[in-house]
Simulated scan of single mutants.
Amino acid sequence: MTRAEPAGSGLALAPGSRVGIIAGGGSLPVEVAEGLVRQGHSPFIILAEGEVDREADFAAYEQATLALEDIGFLLPLLKREGISHLVLAGEIKRRPRLAKIRPTLSLLTIIPSVAMALARGDDGLLKVLTRGLERRGITVVGAHEIVPDLAAGEGTLTKAGPKQSDWRDIEAGRAAAKAIGELDIGQAAIAVGGRAIALEGIEGTRGLLERTRELRGHGRLAGKTRGVLVKCAKPGQELRADLPSIGPQTVEAAHAAGLAGIAVEAGRSLILEGPATLARANALGLFIVGFPATEPTDGQ
């Protein structure tokens, strides 16, 4: 699988492959670890210090903890543990502070690239990290390659489906999300009444939905109903990390914000805790739909 091939293709690991997971927050790293165990591979977990909220779920696995500023020690750790493949999974809420990064010989060669990547944004940093690791013999793979069922399918995934007016919102939200993605700002937008009314910023999807809930009685939104949360990959995104995702909490927050449903880019977005997410959407009467990716898959 190439870097920009659509998600969901699956990955055949050779016998003896050793997979490491850099684990952040949320359920994604847990689901990836469980997927590896089902395939007969016990993962090595690298806990991102201060970011993991489900440490108890990793108790059965070999593990180490690494501060973001100690990224220079990542490669020696991977080599020492015999890691052949690495998955970056889970939410990292903060970015490493360049001034506090402890340099190592392996890191000194890419410090200028890291500095420029930090200035460019999150996706630039991920590209530098993944390419740097692969040049040093570590194969970086996406969470969806380990657990293909995480990738959102195309079409309506719930009992309820979008109305014609919802499709206008989906298109407006998709265009807005792609626009802010081009600037490496965020991956989500909310559209109501055929126009984008809120864009994801540094607060993330949860904050975006909370802001929308508060806006419901404001000005031109007063009295308007329905609306759609749209999430899609950034143009040219590094698809092996930070794919847009939704989960049960996203569904709850979308319902609280008065939205009719959620639309995600099929094959390039993740549905975490899939059965629970779809069941909760069905219980609340929300739709979840996967729309086809529209950009080329060369990742450039």
Rank of each mutant, 00 (worst) to 15 (best):
L278T: 06
A196Y: 03
E145V: 06
I262H: 07
A191I: 09
A117R: 08
P248Y: 00
A12S: 11
L118M: 15
D149F: 00
T2Y: 13
R102Y: 03
P96H: 09
V52F: 05
H218Q: 13
A175I: 08
R3H: 11
G217F: 10
P103F: 11
R280S: 04
I111F: 15
T156M: 03
G90R: 04
K159L: 14
P43H: 03
G40P: 05
C232D: 02
L286R: 06
E238Y: 08
T158A: 06
I185R: 01
R280P: 00
V251T: 02
I202F: 05
M116N: 13
S113R: 15
L105W: 12
A276R: 15
V192G: 01
A48I: 05
I46A: 01
G24S: 09
G8D: 08
G236H: 12
D298V: 09
M1I: 13
E81C: 05
G121D: 00
A67N: 09
T250E: 15
K234Q: 03
S245L: 03
L221A: 08
G20P: 11
A191W: 09
R120C: 00
P292Q: 02
E154F: 04
P292W: 01
L66A: 07
F291A: 05
P103M: 00
D122L: 03
T158H: 04
L28H: 09
